[in-house]
Each structure stands twice: as C-alpha cells, then as structure tokens.
Write a protein that binds this DNA or RNA. Structure first.
Length: 198
DNA sequence: TATTAGATTGTCT
DNA sequence: GACAATCTAATAT
C-alpha cells in the first residue's frame, strides 16, 4: 500500500515522546519523517532508531548541560541536529519532559516520497547510492536536513520538517541490538530496527 | 568480500 | 589539544 500524500497526516503523538526515549524509540518506527525542500516533500517511514538518555555515558546530554546539547533538554518533539566527525549531520527527536536530556537518533528511513530528490541529494562523486537511506549522516544529506533545523518543533503543522503518526510496528517485527559507532556503553541494547520481512 | 585509513570541524577539557 | 551517535574510497585477501 502506498500513501499518496503522507504530509496530510496527523502529527506524531506528543505523549509518546514525553514518555521518554526508551519508550519512544521503538514507537517511532513506522512514523513518517518529512522535510519540504524547494516546495517538494522528501521523506518516508522511520525504520531504525537509537535511544539516548541522560544517564547514558554515550549521550551528548550525559554530564552537564552545554550550548550544544541544550535542545535535548527542550520539550518533546523538538529537533536536535548536530555535526558528526566534522563532516556529517545527524538528526534526533527530543523526548522526555522538558528539562530531561533525552533524544532518539533517527538512523534510517524508507524513502517513499521525493525519492528522486533524495537520490539526487545523496550523489557523491557521481556514484548513485542505494535506495534505502541507512545511516544518520546519509539521512540528513538525502533529506536536506541542516543545522538550521536544530531546535525546530517537529509537531507543528506549518513546519517544513515534520514528524507524523504512522501505523505502529508490531513488537515481533522490531529487532533490538547494541548501538552503532559509539565507544561508551557500547553494549547497551538501545538500537531498534524495523525488520523488513517479506 | 573484508579491513583500514582519511576527511574535517565544532565542542569541551 | 583530543575527540566524535559517520561515510567513502582504497587496499588487501
């Protein structure tokens, strides 16, 4: 089934995000992430997430509150975008109550609208990328998410960067694994993947 | 096919 | 000054 105009859907429920990153991360699978660039919506359903909480040594919010991690302490539904390795940007959905330093890193989506633009944006030295936008850096490049989106409200209807409610993914289709690319708390099972089974 | 090195810059110590 | 929630291309096998 293909949804023709996903951007007309309802915003993702704020209450789920307010419940915290550990609850929200699996619930965000199947939700729609959409970004309007030059009048065209790019996006698709989220298929991979990671949870980061304040008591987590791997989280940017671990320890003290700084200018960089400030958005993570904002209200649920806020966007947190940061520069990774001086090269890539990564996109998070802030969770927990305002004042809690929590977020869910969105690592991958299934491109379902604006696919041509996504593919074009990901061109790298003339080589065409695969269809699945897997990897947080590639996701931001493909969707055109930039630092300007940092702190934006993802649940506001008029925004260009939006998070919409999707059909919840059954628990038996969710795989839980350790997170990718971290050195601290590397064995914590806080990565959630929507196992796309045929 | 698997492993490794290099890019590149904001942030915090 | 060290390091990082990554990605790509090159090299080795």
């Amino acid at each position: 089934m293909t949804v023709q105009r996903p951007w007309t859907g309802a915003a993702f429920p704020r209450a789920v995000l307010a419940d915290g990153a550990l609850t929200a991360a699996p619930r965000l699978l199947g939700a729609w992430l959409l970004h309007r660039v030059d009048g065209t919506w790019r996006g698709g359903r989220i298929v991979e997430t990671e949870a980061y909480t304040q008591d987590d040594p791997a989280s940017h919010s671990f320890g003290r509150r700084t200018p960089r991690n400030e958005p993570m302490f904002g209200p649920p539904g806020t966007a947190y975008v940061y520069l990774s390795y001086g090269v890539h940007h990564c996109f998070n959905v802030v969770t927990g109550a305002k004042g809690d330093g929590e977020a869910v890193l969105v690592r991958a989506i299934l491109p379902e609208t604006g696919v041509e633009q996504i593919v074009a944006a990901r061109l790298w030295r003339g080589k065409p990328p695969g269809l699945l936008v897997n990897g947080p850096g590639k996701l931001c490049r493909g969707l055109g998410i930039e630092p300007g989106a940092n702190g934006a409200n993802l649940l506001a209807r008029r925004n260009h960067l939006r998070l919409l409610r999707g059909k919840p993914v059954p628990a038996d289709q969710i795989e839980v694994t350790p997170r990718i690319g971290i050195t601290k708390a590397a064995d914590w099972p806080r990565r959630f993947v929507w196992r796309v089974s045929p």
